[in-house]
Nucleic acid binder design. Structure first.
Lengths: 205, 205
DNA sequence: ATTATCTATAGATCTATAGATAATGC
DNA sequence: ATTATCTATAGATCTATAGATAATGC
């Protein structure tokens, strides 16, 4: 159900935001539509006026996350021609996106954990844009001879995934190790490590 | 409830194994005790004869995972004196443990995603041994001047977390990118990258 | 007139308990 | 005698639907 009036559009957006936060925090199975409704300040059935089912709502959240991340990344890498710079720009885009939207990071982190996606038949239905983005940057780099012929998915697992850990782990390591992933100094330290690892991973020879 | 007879101990162990697999695949909130019972071949209430509650069962699963991983890692690093070798031995232990027990990898992956652990008050109640293991190896390396003074948790997020991605992501990237994390050639490629990244991350200067 | 939201409820869960029955080992 | 497992069920959910009511814009 696509809202027609501005008020309806606002409600729909509020539902999406609340749902993203709750799905991120406790996962799809544990999330309750009542929690979402309460966070928005409406009654539960009103959610189903905009989204046909709980699964539908989740899909809308995941679709929005990957569409937003893709758009954000495209803007960051457009015009960057040097292959290594392009790769670092893509990693920086993913890092900045997830630091600014930690609920997205948690949802992607859960997506990786889900085995055989019990909820949907196609695990890359929404994440394909991110996979294609990094594959394209990699293909360029290898073709130009700037990168060694490393599998993009090996790089994804070995280097890019750390962005999600950096964001998600901030409060999971105990009180003495807690950090703020958005703190500029902290973020700069992680970014420096991320760049160092990325350069090392792709360096030819 | 601790079983007394051998048959009871077998049942308890079967419940733990089935529960680990199901919690790993779909998460705590979505998991149903009925699924666990069905996988074991018993009735649902029999589970609660051994574990006081669903939460209790989950805690037993998580505790066993981290205790096993800790024991496995300790055996691998004992006797290794060179700091870098110790660090690589710890990473290899984690890698081999999670490749052999992918359900453990998925559960840890979910643990990282859980915000503020809605299920328990202390997020490191069971994972502390892993955190202490890597901190100890790091402290040795820095003291010996073999490592630059990098935060162990930065290393954990930047390098060690990739082990979970490697294991969990194998079936999440679409049919054309699927791989078997236990395949020797595939595993060797990832291990080589993991070692390269670890060396680079800690190298002084 | 149409869109948005609500109340009430059907129908299907799910965890946990109570208490009976079956299996086991002394 | 004790341990292990089962049946039956209480009590509390949860999603989704039906249909009434309130709010909005033409």
């Amino acid at each position: 159900m696509r809202p027609v009036h501005a008020r309806g559009e606002e409600t729909r957006q509020s539902i999406l935001e609340a749902a993203e936060s709750i799905f991120a925090d406790i996962g799809y199975g544990a999330a309750r539509l009542d929690q979402v409704a309460q966070a928005v300040g409406i009654r539960r059935p009103s959610i189903l006026y905009y989204f046909a089912s709980k699964q539908d709502l989740y899909d809308a959240v995941e679709a929005d996350i990957f569409a937003s991340m893709h758009a954000f990344a495209q803007e960051r890498i457009q015009g960057v021609t040097d292959p290594l710079d392009r790769l670092l720009a893509l990693l920086d885009a993913w890092l900045d996106f997830n630091v600014a939207r930690p609920s997205a990071a948690r949802i992607i982190q859960r997506l990786v954990a889900d085995a055989a996606t019990p909820r949907r038949n196609n695990p890359t239905e929404f994440s394909f844009s991110a996979l294609e983005d990094i594959e394209a940057v990699f293909a360029d780099g290898v073709r130009a001879g700037a990168f060694r012929p490393l599998s993009p998915m090996l790089f994804l697992n070995g280097v890019a995934g750390s962005v999600l850990f950096y964001v998600c782990n901030s409060g999971q390591l105990g009180d003495t190790r807690r950090y703020d992933p958005a703190d500029p100094a902290e973020l700069a330290r992680f970014r420096a490590l991320l760049h160092l690892l990325a350069r090392t991973a792709v360096r030819p020879g």
